[in-house]
Amino acid sequence: MKLQRADEMEQFQNDKSARNTYIFFTLALLVWSLINMFSKGETGWEFTILLIGNVIFFWSRIFYRRKMK
Results as ranks from 00 to 15, higher is better:
33 S>T: 05
19 R>H: 12
13 Q>G: 03
43 T>P: 00
32 W>E: 08
36 N>F: 04
55 V>Y: 06
16 K>H: 13
17 S>L: 09
15 D>Y: 06
29 L>Q: 08
20 N>L: 14
24 F>P: 01
49 I>W: 03
30 L>W: 09
31 V>G: 09
33 S>N: 03
36 N>P: 00
45 W>G: 01
31 V>A: 10
35 I>M: 14
51 L>D: 00
24 F>N: 06
28 A>G: 11
53 G>Q: 05
35 I>G: 00
33 S>F: 03
50 L>V: 04
51 L>H: 00
44 G>T: 12
13 Q>M: 13
53 G>E: 06
29 L>T: 00
22 Y>S: 15
41 G>H: 10
16 K>G: 08
22 Y>I: 14
18 A>P: 01
40 K>V: 05
14 N>P: 02
34 L>R: 08
19 R>D: 07
54 N>V: 01
29 L>N: 07
31 V>M: 12
45 W>D: 04
45 W>M: 10
52 I>T: 08
18 A>S: 14
52 I>P: 04
37 M>L: 04
53 G>D: 02
39 S>T: 11
21 T>P: 06
33 S>K: 01
25 F>K: 07
23 I>Q: 01
22 Y>R: 14
42 E>H: 06
40 K>C: 00
43 T>S: 05
44 G>V: 13
24 F>R: 03
34 L>H: 01
46 E>S: 03
22 Y>L: 15
29 L>H: 05
37 M>E: 08
52 I>A: 15
23 I>K: 06
51 L>W: 05
23 I>C: 09
32 W>R: 00
44 G>K: 01
23 I>E: 05
22 Y>A: 15
53 G>I: 05
17 S>P: 10
39 S>L: 00
33 S>R: 04
50 L>M: 13
43 T>H: 02
50 L>E: 01
38 F>Q: 05
12 F>Q: 13
37 M>N: 04
13 Q>A: 13
20 N>Q: 09
32 W>S: 01
40 K>L: 01
31 V>C: 11
54 N>E: 12
14 N>D: 10
41 G>M: 05
39 S>G: 04
24 F>L: 09
21 T>Q: 02
34 L>W: 11
51 L>F: 12
48 T>C: 01
39 S>Y: 03
32 W>T: 03
36 N>G: 05
55 V>M: 15
30 L>G: 14
23 I>S: 06
55 V>C: 11
16 K>W: 15
17 S>C: 11
34 L>C: 15
46 E>W: 07
40 K>N: 06
22 Y>E: 10
31 V>R: 06
52 I>N: 07
20 N>D: 02
45 W>N: 02
12 F>T: 15
13 Q>W: 13
38 F>R: 10
55 V>Q: 03
51 L>A: 11
43 T>M: 09
18 A>Y: 15
42 E>I: 03
24 F>W: 12
49 I>A: 13
28 A>E: 14
39 S>H: 01
20 N>E: 09
29 L>F: 12
28 A>R: 00
42 E>D: 02
